[in-house]
Nucleic acid binder design. Sequence first.
RNA 1: GUGGCCGUAGCUCAGUAGGUUAGAGCGCCGGGUUGUGGUCCCGGAGGUCGGGGGUUCGACUCCCCUCGGUCACCCCA
Length: 424
Amino acid sequence: MAQPLFRAPVGTRDLLPPESARRRRLVAVFADLAERTGFGLLESPIFEDLGVFQRLGADNEVVTKELFEFFDKGDPPRHLALRPELTASVCRAFAEHRPTQPWKIWYSGPQFRYERPQAGRYRQFDQVGVETLGTDDPHADVEVIGLGLRFYEALGMKQVRLLINSLGDATSRPAYDAALAAYLRSRRDELSEQSQITLERNPLRVLDSKREQDQPVIAEAPVMADFLSGESAEHFVAVRAGLDSLDAAYEVSPRLVRGLDYYTRTTFEFVADALDTAQNAVGGGGRYDGLVEDLGGPATPGIGFALGVDRILLACDAEGTFAAAPAPVEVFVVDTAGGQSAAVLCDRLRQAGLGVDRAFDGRSMKAQMKRADRSGAAVAVIIGPDEQAEGAVTVRDMRPGGGQRQVASDDVVSAVTEILAEEA
RNA sequence: GUGGCCGUAGCUCAGUAGGUUAGAGCGCCGGGUUGUGGUCCCGGAGGUCGGGGGUUCGACUCCCCUCGGUCACCCCA
């Protein structure tokens, strides 16, 4: 391959048509659903003060190893970072603006993590998500989770499983952490080397290990459910009852711990069974009742999720749904009389609201017709020297066996719309 | 950060016991049809075989390094 001078940085890529249009459609589907559920769009900066993200957990890899950090040109320079996720930004914005509660926000956009790319994982990746701040009503949990499920359905996905768990609250969590750590230490020798290290850093995360060697130990580990405070247990029951009432299928997964340290009580994950890759979680979220306070705001409960756009699209491919399709051109203008007439006709047709394209460089009739065919246009408007002399155009139905007729160029819009209406 | 596999035209890939001008399909451009696409036929453009170094009379082919891709671990969407 002749190598270009530059290429997209590692872990990033160009999204070309028609794939780019497909992603835009996906976001539009999400936006529609979110807005009809009472969520408003928050557009927050792509980068934030480093401190915003450090609150996600000091021993978390997302924060310690995977951040794109940099200094700006201020005096003194500000220490900034590209956002690795958006929940922290939403909470920062909440603490900064103190909006009325509950504050229901949706978002979409690129995020950045310095990791080795693999299937379904990129350094720049897109997520869509929602956050509800200012209420710990279990119905808010249910609304958020339900929105996620409906979104996957709207894309035509059928093989998405919902896993849920409760991580407990400030009163129940420490007891569990202690019990889990004690248990894991008692069987420390059976754990993989990596898990032994993880054990000292954050025992909870050992439950996340995919190593074969760790599985027997994990299988017998104490379960959070046995340690939930009365309040947390009640909350979890209410969330499940709410999901039941929506006929939402879910699996309680006692070992679902999730990566970010801020999660409390409800946690959940959407898994795409159509993906046979290691990264098959297409979305995840949970409750983070302490995060706003950590960021200097008032104590405010919150719940939300982030869905990985890249992985969702991969899963859609695997399920054969939500296919990429180019934006349809309805009319193609062929001009073998110099191209000036095409400019005028295109303009007129576009002003009439139609999708119109044309060829350049004065190519042959045949070449232009070929373009017209490949554009997918249903109608071709042809103008050559003959038509030009008569102030007319030829309007051709591009369907197989479709006919054509000559009309005055002033009538081009109505002639075209007639054929389009016929085909619709 | 660690490891496996891979790197030949725009795309998908052939090609090596190391040896003249590196091939196919698709795509692209042109022609067959001096005004008409989708099928068919003909022709054409396009590659310093990822980059650098080494071995050799000679390297796309062997060795080393490097860059990139891919998959997995870690971690996560």
